[in-house]
Amino acid sequence: MKEKIAKKIDVFNKKAGFEYFFLEKYDAGMVLTGTEIKSIRMNKFNMTDAYCFFIDGELFVKNLNISKYDQGTHYNHDPLRDRKLLLKKRELKRLDNKLTDQGLTIVPTRLFINDSGLAKLEIALAKGKKLYDKRETIKERDVSRERMRDE
């Protein structure tokens, strides 16, 4: 029995939204192998602990877990390998300059497949929340739920 392969994938990283304030967002392409895109289309990936970093002016994502493809042979990929992100040169320079500020990082917020069938990763320049900020986020979410129930 064949597993269902989804044409549209749009998954958000909820943990990143709870842990960080997003300052700027960018859509980046990813350099993937054939078995990786098949696993993504089968919705077999996890990006809760993923983060981005620079090596020699190029942006990479680390800890983006794309599970091995079931029908993959010896051509199967390493699930936790570092994947290169594709952005314009001026966007890379801007992000690299902003990372020198204290407390800023780059986290993936969303993985989706666009209309052309390409896997894209939405990344955000983010600043970490303090404990009282997280409490405030929980409080706002509870208040909005109560409002929705009353309506």
Results as ranks from 00 to 15, higher is better:
5 I>E: 08
5 I>R: 09
5 I>L: 07
7 K>E: 06
8 K>A: 10
11 V>D: 07
12 F>G: 01
12 F>H: 12
13 N>F: 05
15 K>G: 06
15 K>I: 07
15 K>Q: 14
20 Y>T: 11
21 F>T: 01
24 E>A: 11
29 G>I: 07
29 G>S: 10
32 L>H: 04
33 T>W: 03
35 T>Y: 11
35 T>Q: 03
37 I>M: 14
40 I>Q: 04
42 M>K: 09
43 N>R: 11
45 F>R: 00
46 N>W: 15
47 M>V: 02
49 D>S: 03
50 A>W: 12
55 I>T: 10
56 D>V: 05
56 D>A: 12
57 G>A: 04
60 F>T: 12
66 I>L: 02
73 T>F: 13
74 H>E: 14
74 H>D: 15
78 D>C: 06
81 R>C: 06
82 D>V: 02
82 D>H: 13
83 R>H: 02
84 K>D: 02
86 L>E: 01
92 L>G: 00
94 R>P: 09
103 G>A: 03
104 L>Y: 15
105 T>I: 14
105 T>V: 15
109 T>R: 13
111 L>S: 09
111 L>F: 01
111 L>E: 10
114 N>I: 03
114 N>Q: 10
116 S>R: 05
120 K>W: 04
123 I>L: 07
124 A>P: 00
129 K>W: 08
129 K>N: 07
133 D>S: 02
137 T>C: 03
144 S>P: 01
144 S>L: 11
144 S>A: 15
145 R>A: 01
146 E>N: 15
146 E>V: 12
147 R>N: 04
